[in-house]
Simulated scan of single mutants.
Amino acid sequence: MTNEGEALPPARRTLATGDLARVAVFAALIAALGLPGTITALGNQVPITLQTFGVMLAGAILGRWRGALAVIVLLVLVAAGLPLLAGGRGGLGVFAEVSAGYLIGWPVGAFVTGWIVERGGYKPGIVRLLVACAVGGIAVIYLFGIPVVAVRGELTLGQAAVGSLLFVPGDVIKVVLAALVVRATQRAYPDAVPAVHRERLRAAGER
């Protein structure tokens, strides 16, 4: 085992049946988090949803590759027409909406969240989890979302960025909740730590 911050050996990219099941479960979880619907505040064209909370959980629990894959699976199903986004939205048309950049940022956000957690080795601390969820689940997603809002909404980047501040309080709450959920999950199920899961897969493959 490694200490926090130590580099880990490269992981295998193949997915076992159990991994595919986990990917499917988290894709379903993100979809389920859309069931409460959306909130559109102060005329903002980008809806507020709980689904980014699922994106954070996917990256932090599954790791970068599986977390990103879970989000991609969801988006592929959405593109195929399934109404899996908050508010019952689905179809290719959602990728032409003002909020499309945020959707495109979801898998990248999950990947970055997972990558930061993995850098914590076998015992990622609560601070690392908070940073991972904040960077991947807020900063990265906003990085994709704000420019598209600016273009589609005919706004300047500054105006779009100011408009996005409306989402920050809710997203900060999601970050804290996600970090606490992930921490509790990893304590109860050590295999939920990406580095531990990866090591077990590696050990199984060497037998």
Rank of each mutant, 00 (worst) to 15 (best):
residue 86 A to V: 04
residue 79 A to Y: 11
residue 94 V to P: 04
residue 99 S to L: 05
residue 94 V to F: 05
residue 87 G to R: 04
residue 89 R to N: 10
residue 98 V to G: 11
residue 78 V to H: 12
residue 87 G to S: 09
residue 96 A to I: 03
residue 81 G to A: 02
residue 84 L to N: 00
residue 75 L to M: 14
residue 100 A to K: 10
residue 72 I to L: 15
residue 99 S to W: 03
residue 72 I to G: 14
residue 73 V to Y: 14
residue 76 V to N: 07
residue 96 A to S: 12
residue 91 G to L: 01
residue 74 L to P: 04
residue 100 A to E: 12
residue 98 V to S: 14
residue 90 G to P: 05
residue 79 A to Q: 10
residue 98 V to Y: 12
residue 82 L to T: 05
residue 86 A to R: 06
residue 78 V to D: 07
residue 80 A to I: 09
residue 73 V to E: 13
residue 86 A to T: 06
residue 83 P to W: 01
residue 75 L to D: 06
residue 92 L to A: 11
residue 98 V to I: 15
residue 91 G to I: 00
residue 86 A to Y: 08
residue 84 L to A: 00
residue 75 L to Q: 15
residue 93 G to H: 07
residue 71 V to S: 10
residue 77 L to W: 02
residue 89 R to L: 07
residue 71 V to G: 11
residue 71 V to K: 13
residue 72 I to R: 15
residue 78 V to E: 02
residue 87 G to P: 08
residue 81 G to S: 08
residue 77 L to R: 07
residue 90 G to K: 02
residue 95 F to Y: 12
residue 83 P to T: 10
residue 95 F to I: 08
residue 71 V to N: 12
residue 96 A to N: 13
residue 85 L to T: 00
residue 82 L to Y: 07
residue 97 E to M: 12
residue 73 V to F: 13
residue 82 L to A: 14
residue 78 V to T: 13
residue 93 G to E: 13
residue 81 G to M: 01
residue 98 V to N: 11
residue 81 G to N: 02
residue 91 G to W: 00
residue 92 L to D: 04
residue 97 E to I: 03
residue 78 V to F: 07
residue 97 E to V: 00
residue 91 G to M: 01
residue 82 L to K: 01
residue 93 G to M: 06
residue 94 V to Q: 06
residue 75 L to I: 07
residue 76 V to E: 13
residue 100 A to C: 10
residue 89 R to Q: 14
residue 87 G to L: 11
residue 89 R to D: 05
residue 72 I to F: 14
residue 79 A to P: 04
residue 84 L to Y: 01
residue 100 A to P: 09
